[in-house]
Structure formats: C-alpha cells, structure tokens
Design a protein around this nucleic acid. Structure first.
Length: 355
DNA sequence: GGGCCCGCAGGG
DNA sequence: CCCTGCGGGCCC
C-alpha cells in the first residue's frame, strides 16, 4: 500500500474527528438497507406533467406533498427480481435504479414559472418548507433551484442573515473532510478565501482556495451559528459535486429540513491549516426518505463500460461475490414503499417576510 | 480538463 | 453602491 499523502492523512483525521462528533450528537449513518430505494427512474416528461397537476391541485391545498417514489405508476422495474431470475444482471437498469431519482424534474425548458414563488411572482423568503416544492425536487442548475425559492444564492453555499439565521444551505462538495451521513452531516462554513482574481481582472473570482482563517463574523457562518441557537429549520440541497452516496449524480436536489445541532471551529483541510467554521446538521424526523446511491455498483458500471462492454458481459453475472454483504437486490425491497406518506409538515414558525 | 471570466442574489 | 459566494460556460 502506498503511503498516504499528508493531505490524506489530515483528511482521515478530520473525518474521524467529525464522525465522532456526529456520533456524540446521536447522528448515525442510516444504512442503505434501511432506506427505501427509489423504484426506477421515471421519464422526466411524465414527471413534469405530474408536477403540473400537483401545481394546479395545490390551488386549494396539496393533500399529499412529499412523495418520494412514484407509487402511482406500475413499473416494470418493480419486478426486477423476477426478471433477474433467468437473466443476467442488467447493469444499465441497475444504474438507473441506484441513481437518485429526480422526484420532480424541473428545469429551464419546462418551467411554466417558478412554483416556489408567491402569487406576486416574487421569491419566497422564509424558514422551513416552501409551498408546492416537495422534498426530493430536483433541478439542473443552482439558478433553477433559486427560482423556486429553495436556495436563493446562485453561488453561495449559505443563505440567511446573521440576525435571523440561515434559510438554506448547499451541500456541494468543496470540502473533502465534511462527513455526509445523509440524515446528518458536517458542513464547512464560508469565507477565508481570497477572491482576488487575476491582475487584469482583480476581485473577480467567485471561489478560491483557503488563504486565511474563517470567522463567525462572516454573514453565512453567523447565520448558521444563529440557527444553532434558535433551532429553526434549514433547507438543505445536495449537489452533484458532493461525493457521498446521498448526493445526486447530477444537478441539485432538495433534501428537506435539518437543524443545526452544533457550531465550532477547527483546523480545516487546507495547505495552510487555516481555521474553518464547522456545523453539525441533523435531519428533522418524519420526512420522506433520502434516495441512496450504490456507488460501488456505479463504479462497476463504469468499469464495464471502459472495458469495452461486449465480451465482458458474461462475468457480470458471476461477479456477485463481490460485495454481497449489502443485501442485494434480487429479493424485494418493495416493502419499503409502504411508508411513503410519512410527510413532514414542519414549518418555520412565522412566515417571516422581509424586504 | 483546467483556467479565466461572467451574471446574479443577497446582506450591509 | 459595496462586498461576498461549495456556478457555469467558454476557450484553450
């Protein structure tokens, strides 16, 4: 085994420390086994229609928000077990299955106007959930997400003010020592970067390497610290740059409401060893389950594709001895869907408008 | 794939 | 207006 780089050593240390901290807060990783798996990817077209319906219906009040899986659609994929019985594993299908399913797919092309905006068309600024935006809603870009009032900034990871607290955050990778357990995670704050850009175009960067200590003076960090005191819910989106099994493979997904359990500072994972502000998040109970990816399976698919895919297909079948421990697919994971309607009506207390 | 530059949404 | 900021597109 090659010796670890200094970076990796520190990374391991930080992750260990953060994991222990999450554990101390009672935040445990939920094994994928215990989490309902998305049935199968649904053609975006279909989904969009559905969204529109919901939108219309919601004029009164949406009875069932927060559907995670498409229980209404009889999918052939649901009977995978039977299909697999006599066939080789179809990794294409497998990939589709394990990839986070966009619950409602909305993007520029299809948008008939932001759902998450009031009658006025203005974006909604409040704590907690946004009307008509279900947990699991997926967007192609941060801009689209912003238009639905879930996370306003196009670039920034934290939305909120130091006086009121944080409205939302984006978990989008960027800090390799953050630990994402799905139902809880650690998050690194903002600041400590020198956005100086090039000589000709000074101060023209949107992001840059860590170059000094972060502080809680930073608006975003202060907002999150405030949230840790008030206990108000924070909307969380996960982005494709996040490497965890809970991240979408592409685009951005709204994963519901979390609370900030703790705020602290520690030496960050950067060459200078600069301090960063860190936060521990915990998912509020009774929300739709998170989609979980099977990263190993995806890697296998990738490898297969790289190997040229044709002749290799035979042994796909037999490679089942690889990582069987994780329950495997061939039996039904259907049981899971039963609880689809655990919906969370958690809201921020007050609408808290603000101009 | 990496570097550069850009528009934009906040908060102060 | 000033500043920031876990995007994104384009060009190389």
């Amino acid at each position: 085994m090659p010796k670890l780089s200094q970076y990796e050593i520190e990374r391991e240390e930080n992750i260990k420390r953060n994991s222990a901290l999450l554990d101390a807060l009672g935040i445990q990783k939920v094994h994928p086994k215990e989490v309902p798996k998305p049935k199968k990817a649904v053609p975006p077209k279909k989904r969009k229609a559905e969204v529109d319906e919901n939108n219309d219906a919601s004029a009164g009040s949406p009875p069932k928000i927060a559907r995670t899986t498409s229980s209404d659609q009889p999918l052939s994929g649901a009977r995978r077990s039977a299909r697999n019985a006599g066939k080789k594993v179809d990794y294409k299908a497998e990939q589709i299955r394990v990839i986070p399913v966009p619950i409602s797919t909305r993007n520029k092309a299809g948008n008939a106007g932001p759902l998450g905006s009031g009658a006025s068309g203005r974006k909604i600024v409040k704590f907690g959930s946004i009307p008509d935006i279900e947990v699991g809603t997926w967007w192609q870009t941060r801009e689209d997400c912003s238009n639905d009032s879930i996370h306003a900034p196009w670039v920034g990871g934290i939305s909120g003010s130091k006086h009121k607290g944080a409205y939302s955050i984006a978990l989008s990778g960027g800090y390799d020592d953050d630990v994402d357990l799905g139902y809880g995670f650690t998050f690194t704050g903002a600041g400590g970067r020198d956005l100086k850009g090039t000589k000709t175009k000074p101060k023209n960067l949107r992001t840059a390497p860590q170059s000094c200590d972060q502080t809680f003076e930073n608006n975003g960090n202060a907002a999150l610290k405030k949230s840790s005191e008030t206990g108000k819910p924070v909307r969380v989106i996960r982005g494709f740059k996040n490497k965890s099994e809970f991240a979408p493979s592409e685009g951005y997904r709204y994963d519901g409401l979390y609370t900030v359990e703790k705020a602290w500072m520690e030496k960050g994972l950067n060459p200078g060893g600069f301090l960063v502000c860190k936060f521990a998040f915990k998912r509020i109970a009774d929300q739709p389950p998170l989609p979980v990816r099977d990263l190993d399976a995806e890697a296998a698919v990738k490898n297969q594709a790289k190997d040229g895919g044709n002749d290799a297909q035979n042994d796909e079948e037999s490679d089942e001895d690889e990582d069987e421990d994780e329950d495997e697919d061939d039996d039904e994971d259907e049981d899971a869907d039963a609880d689809g309607e655990a919906e969370a009506e958690i809201e921020g207390e007050e609408p808290e408008e603000q101009g």
